[in-house]
Design a protein around this nucleic acid. Structure first.
Lengths: 334, 334
DNA sequence: CTGTTAGCGCTTTCAT
DNA sequence: ATGAAAGCGCTAACAG
């Protein structure tokens, strides 16, 4: 039924070893022989069996990528960066979605390991003890992208979330705002949550701006929670003049909440955030935000992983990529 | 280094076969023996090698999913449906992004086949002769989701795009509109392009509404092309009172183009489309659209594939799922 | 209920 | 430059 390397060998009048060599581009084959083999392959419609190959060579040229939420465009963009570099180095990737569930993340990691991937990329999400335990059992290199482990022991690629939040807040301050509220992510989340809140706080402290407790609301990163948080701020007696959101999606929710009250952005309230997702330039007003280089995060992480898989020496396993401010139309000078 | 089934067998004092049986939940093992084996597995930290298993059993319990564009939320949602059902039937999935490039689609299909996936799901995109040729070489079942081949030979899951477009247009007509323009997709694309245009045309013909040539613009499904097309309509002497867009994303572009001219939706111009992506409820006004059951398309396609892989008899290999109209705020009565 | 024994399709020494 | 042969780690008859 299926044609094997053995069939090709017979057809071409050579040994399996020779066929294997030509398939793997081993230079030690006479051009003439190579030609014969190619013809036999063509004639028979031979397709190498990657499973058998993986078993024999103990390499699958495949890296596993765990993506916490495939429907989140941030991760999708990071995945594109990963892919492009993976292709460049002739690795295939297995994208595994974990649906924002921790236990599924662990399951997915184990499945990937069973499949004998040569390396693992873990995207976003919190890295818990259980994650660490799962990583521990792996004998392949692992790189985190968009997140870090508490001990900073695992190679990772990130932006400086704290500084990004600081810069965003500073821009608001520079525009004369002193009543600045924040829609934060979970303070349990080290990267997108805690760090961004810290940066916000530092900028305020730095400028001697007080932060009333009611000026901070914790959301879940999504649109609806942005609306909810903003509605809360809107009802405050001393309403903020600017809002900093930990993510673009919540910021867009906030903008709509403001507009739904008949107010305008940035006329009545300025809004700014971090991420620069595609949607940030598909709203009115265009969202001012700190751009996170998502594609690059993926690309650099994958590149780092190839080096690790190749057992190359790494100078700096914790890479931090620069962020940049996208000044658009959602922030006004006071 | 790595612990194999053989190590476990020795540790537990049984044969490889017995270990294999317990790992595969074969009932023919004495509970006591089973326990011994589990303990040995635990002690040694044994993890089955899926590659070896795949080679020996000629099954990988893995299905390949080719996704044309991972950054498109429609496909992401379909993928979620696929995933959930795959998990339910204990299949793993390999998600492979093809970046909207036909040659990459073909490459990805071949890679998946080399990896010996047990089934293949092909999402979106046009199915060309080259695709068919690649499918031909496969000896595993294949299901299309969100697209069809010209001959309707390959099992597939879809909505009735023509009817969906008809229904959308009809809603505009029912609201008193007679000057209706369309932002179409490529007429080369059988599903999202041609079929939707046909449905639009049929509704108009049906109501004896003329369609001036300048009332149809072809876009590329994305936001910017919606803006572009709308700007064209806006400059027409006889401006349409309603616009039907082949996709939500273009519709949102159209809405913003209208608003950017100081006009309102639906006050000045009504907008309606097909898809019901998340963003459709993250704009102002909320977008009226025909909902495509994306999750279900993925789920049903995967379920169909499991049956095919299981060699079950299929009554109807061409599945058409129902669509429904989401009346929101972007269409006004004239 | 358990063990023995062939492979699965390929890579990889080791010879030649 | 090429071939022979020994596995890679596991499953699947087949025996018993």
């Amino acid at each position: 039924m299926t044609v094997t390397i053995y069939d090709v060998a017979r057809e071409a009048g050579v040994s399996m070893a020779t066929v294997s060599r030509v398939v793997n581009n081993n230079p030690n084959v006479k051009p003439q022989t190579r030609k014969k083999v190619y013809e036999a392959i063509e004639r028979l419609g031979y397709r190498p069996n990657a499973v058998a190959r993986g078993l024999a060579s103990k390499k699958t040229t495949t890296v596993g990528v765990v993506i916490p939420d495939i429907s989140n465009s941030i991760f999708a963009e990071v995945a594109r960066g990963i892919e492009d570099i993976a292709n460049m180095y002739h690795y295939n990737i297995i994208l595994s979605n974990a649906d924002k569930k921790k236990d599924k993340e662990i399951r997915v990691i184990n499945t990937l390991l069973e499949k004998q991937v040569d390396g693992l990329l873990f995207m976003g999400g919190v890295v818990t003890e259980d994650h660490l335990a799962a990583f521990q059992t792996a004998s392949i290199p692992i790189v985190l992208c968009g997140t870090v482990d508490d001990e900073r022991k695992i190679p990772s690629v990130n932006i400086d979330h704290e500084q990004a939040a600081f810069d965003a807040t500073q821009l608001l301050i520079d525009n004369g705002h002193r009543k600045i509220a924040m829609i934060s992510g979970s303070l349990q989340d080290p990267a997108n949550g805690y760090a961004r809140y810290q940066g916000f706080k530092r900028a305020l402290d730095n400028a001697n701006i007080p932060l009333p407790e009611e000026y901070v609301r914790v959301g879940n990163y999504r649109y609806d929670s942005g609306i909810e948080a903003m509605n809360y701020f809107l009802e405050l007696e001393d309403r903020p003049t600017a809002v900093f959101s930990a993510t673009d999606e919540m910021a867009i929710g906030a903008i709509h909440a403001i507009q739904d009250q008949g107010l305008t952005v940035p006329g009545d309230i300025s809004v700014m955030s971090i991420d620069n997702i595609n949607m940030a330039s598909m709203v009115r007003p265009l969202l001012t935000t700190v751009a996170q280089p998502m594609y690059d995060i993926g690309a650099v992480a994958m590149r780092l992983l190839t080096k690790l898989m190749n057992k190359e020496q790494i100078e700096q396993p914790q890479v931090v990529l620069p962020h940049s401010i996208m000044k658009r139309n959602s922030v006004a000078h006071l």
